[in-house]
Amino acid sequence: MPVITYRDALNQALREEMQRDDRVFIMGEEVGVYQGAYKVSKGMLQEFGEMRVVDTPITELGFAGVGVGAAMVGLRPIIEFMTWNFALLALDQVVNSAAKMLYMSGGQFSIPIVFRGPNGAALQLSAQHSQAWESWLAHIPGLKVVAPGTPYDAKGLLKSAVRDENPVIVLEGEMLYNTKGDVPAEEYLIPIGKAALKREGDHCSIITHGKMILVALQAADQLAKEGIRVEVLDLLSLRPMDVEAIVATVRKTNRAVVLEEGWEVAGIGAQVVDYIQRECFDDLDAPVVRVHQTDVPMPYAKNLERAAKPDVPKTIAAVKRVMYLEQ
C-alpha cells in the first residue's frame, strides 16, 4: 500500500471529489496561487482553475457565508480555514446559518458544505493561535464533526464529508500534515459516526481522537513494555459519536482514560465520560481519568507550553492511576 503524508491524503481526497462532482469547489485564504498555507491544495489551481479553487481576502465571516449561500442553491463548497483559530470569526455563519438552515426552513434547504482546516496547537504559536475547538463545534446540533489523526482516516473521512448532505466540520492538525501512513490507492470512504479500534488490549482503554491518537499509541507502546495492555479507541467522529464503540471497549477493559487536546471544562472528554457513566456504571473498576490541556491559554515559552499540553508521560500516568498502580 502506498505510504503518503496526511497532507497528500487530504489533497487526494479533495482532487478525487472535485473530479467526481463539478458542483464541488474549494475556497479560502491562500488556497490557490500560494498553493495552500500548509500546501494541502497544492496543484489544485492548476488542475481545476480559479472558478473552483478560489483565493479569498482575509474575511472568514464573509467567505463562510458565501459558502453557505452557494450551498443553499445547489453547490457543494469546501471552505478552508487557514486555522480554526481564525474560524472563530466565521462561527456566526457556521452556527447560525449552516447548522440551522435545514431545521428553520422546515427541511427545505439542506447545506452540503465542508468547513476544514488545522485545529489545536502547533509549536510555540502562543495563546491566540493554539486552540482546540472541537467541543465548541460538537455542541451544535445540525453540524457533524470529524477529527482524523492519520492519513488513512483523513482521506476517507474528508471524502465522506464532501459527499454528506449536511455541514461537516473536518478538524485537521498542523503537526499532522507531515506525518505518514498507509493509504490505499483505490477509492474508499470512512463512515461518519463510527469509531475505530486502533490497538487492542484488555487492561485499560484510552479513548481519544485527532492528533492525540499518536500520543495514545505511543503511551500504549511504552506501557506494553511494562506488561500493561492498553486498548486505544479512536473516536474519529465527535458528532455523531460512536457510543456503542465506547461502551464496548469500557465493558472489555473496565477502565478508561479519556485523552483530548483541548481544555477540561465542557470538553469532549466530559461528554465521553457522561456516556460511560450512563452505560457502563457497573462495569467500571475505577473512576475514569481525563487528560487534557492545562486550564490556561497556551503560553509561548517552550517549557511552559510543554507543561500545558497533554503528552505521553501524562497519559501514561493517567493509565497507571486508573489501574491503581500510582497515585
Binding site: N85, F86, L88, S126, A127, Q128, Y300, A301
Partner: peptide
C-alpha cells in the same frame, strides 16, 4: 515569556500589544 513575537506588550510606554488575529 508568555506572549512571544506576536504579543509584545509594555504598559510602561502605553504599548498595547501585538495582536495575532
Amino acid at each position: 515569556g508568555k506572549g512571544g513575537s506576536m504579543h509584545v506588550f509594555d504598559r510602561n510606554v502605553n504599548f498595547l500589544g501585538g495582536h495575532g488575529i
